[in-house]
Each structure stands twice: as structure tokens, then as C-alpha cells.
């Protein structure tokens, strides 16, 4: 049985204290309250409405479900846990995320998944159902980003400019045949075949589809581009020591 609270009837501090003290809590009527679920380690938090910036920053475990859109800097430096948003996300989503999973049903703004990484059992995963803005996956250092373009016409551009600039590890999957505009020559990009899709995407897409009651098979049937750093073209600068 979860505790229920209407965010419009308590002040922000009380709301956060409640969220911190209750392992299972349902927040309704959320109207831009910032930093909800910051550094949370366990339990389940359900939010209806629009949580403000900094939702789930440093998240360290547990599950957060949002029925509505989320704003900027969501899941910043997230370490572990699960966040599902049945709506759109603003800018700087999942910056420097290290572990856990973030599923967005709709679109994401600028700078999604910048400098995400992975370490041992921690593999950061970001799946965006619609499209993403510019700078997606810049400086990617590990982990997985998938942009699915659901409800977009076939062959649509799913990202903005500067996709994956400076990326040096990890993977980006785009469910389209359209290569991102101006993709850096230091990256390799190819259309995945059925076997590769099965190996790398099936589990991920099944997870995502079940979170939003979607048809995994239908999503998987689309074409997927895979973007990875070209190991032969590193960003290493040539140095000369005196």
C-alpha cells in the first residue's frame, strides 16, 4: 500500500521530506516542484503531473514512474535504478549517467545522454520513444542510447545536429534509415541486420515496450542504425613533451 500525497496541498519541503521518508509513495498534482527523488536508493515513487528540473538526479536505486512530462536535467549523474516517463523530457537528460535505466515515452530535448558511461555491472541505458534534439550522446563514454522514432514517418531524422560528437565508447541505436546530419567521421554508422538486432536490442526493446504496454515485435521490426566510435580514429591529441 503506497502513501498518497497531493503536491498542490503541501509545500515543497514537506513534499520532499515525505518522498524521502516513504519507500512507496504516489504524488499527484505535481506542478514543477524541483529535485524530486534526488539520490533516492530504493522503493517506488509514482508522480502524476509535471515534476520540475533535477528529477532523479544522483538516483541510486528504486523505481520512479512519471505520468506526464518532465523538465530539464532529469537523471543527472544517475548511478542506478529505473525511471520511466510517460511523456516528453526537457534538456540535458541523463547527463553523466553511470548506471540504471531511463525510458522516455515521448521526445527528449537538447543534450540528451551527454557523457553517459558504464562501469562493470553498471550499464547506463537511455531509451527515447520519439525523437531527440541536438547534441544527443555527445562525449558518450559508455552505456546505450536508443531513439525509436515511434509515430514518426519511416526514414525520419530522429536527432538534431552534432549527434554523438566526441563519443569514444558506448552505443547509440536509431530506429531509422536516416543517418544523423553531419555525423563525425570519427564514428562508424551502419544498418543493423536481424541477427545483430536480436543480440543487442531485443532485451532492451522488450523491457521498454513492457514499461509502456507497447508491441515489442512491432518496434523491433523497424530498421536500426548503430553508431559506435571508430577505434581506428581516436580523439587522442598528439602531445610533445619537452
Amino acid at each position: 500500500m503506497s502513501v498518497q500525497v497531493n503536491a498542490s496541498q503541501v509545500d515543497e519541503r514537506t513534499l520532499k521530506d515525505l518522498i524521502e521518508s516513504e519507500s512507496n509513495i504516489e504524488v499527484t498534482g505535481c506542478l514543477g516542484q524541483r529535485y524530486l527523488g534526488v539520490a533516492r536508493k530504493c522503493g517506488q515513487l509514482r508522480i502524476t503531473g509535471t515534476p520540475g528540473n533535477g528529477l532523479a538526479s544522483y538516483l541510486d536505486g528504486g523505481e520512479i514512474y512519471v505520468h506526464g512530462n518532465v523538465q530539464d536535467a532529469v537523471a543527472d549523474t544517475m548511478n542506478d535504478g529505473f525511471l520511466a516517463v510517460d511523456g516528453n523530457a526537457g534538456d540535458a537528460l541523463c547527463y553523466a549517467m553511470r548506471g540504471g535505466r531511463v525510458f522516455i515515452r515521448g521526445n527528449a530535448g537538447y543534450r540528451a545522454g551527454v557523457h553517459m558511461k558504464a562501469y562493470r555491472e553498471r550499464q547506463s541505458i537511455l531509451v527515447i520513444g520519439g525523437r531527440a534534439g541536438s547534441f544527443l550522446g555527445e562525449y558518450l563514454a559508455g552505456g546505450t542510447i536508443a531513439v525509436l522514432g515511434l509515430d514518426c514517418p519511416a526514414g525520419s531524422q530522429l536527432t538534431g545536429y552534432f549527434c554523438a560528437n566526441g563519443m569514444y565508447a558506448g552505443s547509440i541505436y536509431l530506429r531509422t534509415t536516416a543517418r544523423p546530419v553531419g555525423l563525425s567521421d570519427k564514428l562508424s554508422c551502419h544498418l543493423m541486420d536481424g541477427e545483430e538486432k536480436k543480440a543487442k536490442l531485443e532485451g532492451l526493446i522488450r523491457d521498454y515496450a513492457s514499461a509502456f504496454s507497447l508491441d515489442a515485435q512491432q518496434i523491433l521490426s523497424g530498421p536500426f542504425l548503430s553508431i559506435e566510435a571508430d577505434p581506428h580514429k581516436s580523439y587522442r591529441q598528439l602531445y610533445a613533451t619537452l
Binding site: 562501469y119 565508447a169 580523439y235
Partner: peptide
Amino acid sequence: VPEGIDAISPAPHHD
């Protein structure tokens, strides 16, 4: 961060 792989701190904080 994994062993043997460069650790890059970007020049700006992108957030």
C-alpha cells in the same frame, strides 16, 4: 571507469 580506457573530463559541464 573501465581499466585502460581514457577518462575525459569535458571542458565545460554540459548541464
